[in-house]
Computed example of a mutant assay.
Amino acid sequence: MASSILHSQSPILQHSAAVFAFFPALVGAVGLFFPRLVLAGAFEFEMPASPKDQKLVDSLMRLFCVRDLFLGGVALAAWYNEDQKTLGAIMLLGAGVVFTDGAVNKHQTGRGAWKHWTFVPVMAGIGAGLLGWLDGLVAA
């Protein structure tokens, strides 16, 4: 039963990837309008004191959130078009993005990396499954 979930043609893998695509899309959408919410919530970064620096941080967070919207949107487009190979590659690349987010979080605040890193093996597993890398594990 579990082995069919790992197969590259499994609709469960494809739909799981779509569910994971909603996370960056949602964070991106919220962050465009409320960049400080993402800054404090997802990264636990402190807001600088000066208004000029606050404006810069708000702008940088909006750029970051557009990246998240793109990542979620392109994954959802691949899912919608039933292109599991592209969706698998996007999941693997997304796992790299999430890993880097956690590393930056840890470097800046000394904590919070696991808020991001928890998703890395799941996204990598979904990506590997969609790319067919786990098909050999499936019993014939």
Rank of each mutant, 00 (worst) to 15 (best):
V98G: 01
A29C: 08
V66D: 03
F22T: 15
M1G: 04
F64Y: 15
V120R: 01
V138C: 12
V74H: 03
K85D: 08
A75F: 08
F45A: 09
L60Q: 13
Q54E: 14
N81E: 12
P121R: 04
V74S: 09
R67D: 06
S16P: 00
L134R: 07
M47K: 14
M123K: 10
A113K: 10
Q108N: 04
L6C: 05
I12K: 07
Q54P: 00
N81D: 08
F64D: 05
A103Y: 00
M61A: 09
H15Y: 14
L76F: 03
C65D: 05
L63W: 03
T100S: 09
L87I: 15
G112H: 06
T109N: 07
L92F: 00
D101E: 10
P11A: 11
A21K: 02
G102P: 01
G28R: 03
V74G: 01
L6K: 12
T109W: 09
H15W: 11
E82C: 04
P35H: 05
L13H: 06
R62S: 03
A29I: 14
F70N: 06
L60G: 02
A42R: 07
G28Y: 02
L56M: 12
T109F: 10
Q14V: 00
E44V: 02
M123I: 10
M47G: 03
V66M: 11
G72W: 06
M47D: 07
G136S: 11
H107Y: 09
I90C: 01
E46Q: 15
V122D: 03
A78R: 07
W114Q: 14
V66N: 04
L76M: 12
A49L: 06
V74F: 09
R36C: 00
S3N: 07
L134A: 08
E82D: 13
L26I: 15
I5Y: 10
A128I: 06
D53I: 01
W79H: 11
L93N: 07
G112K: 04
G127H: 05
V104S: 02
L26Y: 13
S10P: 00
F22M: 12
L60R: 13
A42L: 12
F64W: 15
L39D: 12
D101S: 01
V38S: 03
V38I: 15
H7N: 09
N105R: 05
L71G: 00
G110K: 06
L71C: 02
L134S: 10
G102Y: 05
E44I: 04
F20G: 02
W133V: 13
A21F: 05
V66Q: 06
G136C: 06
P11Y: 11
F99Q: 08
H15S: 12
N81K: 13
F119S: 10
H7W: 10
A17H: 09
